[in-house]
Simulated scan of single mutants.
Amino acid sequence: MTMAQAETQGEALTARQQAVLDAVLSLMVEKGSGLTMTAVARRASCSKETLYKWFGDRDGLLTATVQWQASKVRAGNYERQKLDSGALRESLKRFAANWLEVISSPTSIALNRIGISQAASREGNLGSIVLANGRFAIGERLKPVLDAGREAGLLAFDDTETAFRTLFGLAGRDVQIRLLLGDTLTLSKAEIARDAERATEQFLTLYGTAQNDPGRKTNNA
């Protein structure tokens, strides 16, 4: 599956297929890495033949599951040719909020724990699947927003990947590693919105231009 296809994975799935992938995620939360096609078919009330037809083998099912989870992380809608500071700010805030909501969910915590375990033991491919279809795919989804901001004169940076990683770090902070290690940290909707706004403002302080905020001088202007 190409990157463009991965970015629209959520929209391409039928409601029944989405329910199957949600069943995979719920099984991961409950049972960890002991996931079988039989268990998924039983939980989702469908046949194994249907699973193979839709997703191919077990890795295909896991890849689709990761893409489905990652598709929930999005930036806002905007017109590239008419991007202004308000639309850019809202797009970055939406991305940061979506990212925090997803990584703090029980399903993402379970998915990442299994992926890390398999990467360390080399007993499965979920680690590489999560990396390719999670972190890297999410980066490719946001980078066009950052590039559009630079083209509009609202952002100033030399390397898009570096700028993305900065926003990624500002939004996530230590939340994901704490949750993966068993911290009972709980983020409310209000806390996520606050943290997303703070990360966005910090990012714009680093990379925003005077055109983005005429009242503020920046080193990038």
Rank of each mutant, 00 (worst) to 15 (best):
Thr205Tyr: 07
Ala119Asn: 14
Leu61Thr: 00
Ile103Asp: 02
Leu146Ser: 04
Glu7Gly: 07
Arg94Pro: 02
Gly32Leu: 08
Ala23Thr: 11
Ala199Ser: 04
Asn112Arg: 15
Cys46Pro: 09
Ala196Lys: 03
Leu13Gln: 03
Ile177Arg: 09
Trp99His: 15
Ile138Trp: 03
Glu30Pro: 00
Ile129Phe: 10
Gly208Ala: 02
Leu131Met: 14
Gly10Asn: 09
Leu142Phe: 10
Pro144Arg: 07
Gln118Arg: 13
Asp159Gln: 10
Gly182Cys: 04
Glu101Val: 00
Glu30Arg: 14
Val66Phe: 02
Ala96Thr: 02
Ser188Trp: 03
Gly34Met: 01
Leu27Gln: 10
Arg150Val: 01
Gln176Ile: 00
Ile103Thr: 11
Leu35Cys: 07
Ser26Trp: 01
Arg16Leu: 08
Gly86His: 11
Ala75Val: 05
Ala64Leu: 04
Leu167Asp: 00
Gln17Asp: 04
Thr2Glu: 12
Ala156Gly: 08
Gly10Cys: 07
Gln176Arg: 05
Leu131Gly: 05
Ala97Asp: 08
Asn133Ile: 05
Gly134Ile: 08
Met3Leu: 13
Leu25Trp: 06
Arg122Met: 13
Ser91Ile: 04
Asn125Glu: 15
Gly208Ser: 02
Lys53Asp: 08
Leu88Pro: 01
Ala64Gln: 07
Arg42Ile: 04
Gln69Val: 03
Cys46Tyr: 04
Glu101Gln: 09
Glu90Tyr: 01
Gly149Trp: 07
Leu187Cys: 06
Met1Phe: 03
Glu49Arg: 09
Met37Val: 10
Glu49Leu: 03
Thr65Tyr: 03
Ser45Arg: 13
Thr107Ala: 15
Val130Phe: 08
Glu90Pro: 02
Arg43Lys: 14
Gly56Arg: 06
Thr50Arg: 11
Leu204Cys: 02
Pro214Asp: 11
Asn220Leu: 09
Phe95Ala: 03
Leu185Arg: 13
Ala6Leu: 03
Pro106Tyr: 06
Arg141Asn: 11
Ala23Met: 09
Leu27Trp: 07
Gln211Glu: 06
Met1His: 05
Ala196Phe: 03
Gly76Phe: 01
Thr166Leu: 02
Gly124Trp: 10
Thr50Ile: 11
Asn133Arg: 12
Glu11Asn: 08
Leu62Pro: 00
Pro106Asp: 05
Asn125Met: 13
Ser33Asn: 11
Thr166Gly: 01
Leu179Asp: 09
Asp57Met: 09
Asp174Val: 06
Gly208Lys: 01
Arg74Glu: 13
Ile116Ser: 08
Arg165Met: 14
Asp174Leu: 04
Cys46Ser: 05
Phe136Trp: 14
Arg165His: 11
Gly149Ser: 07
Leu167Gly: 00
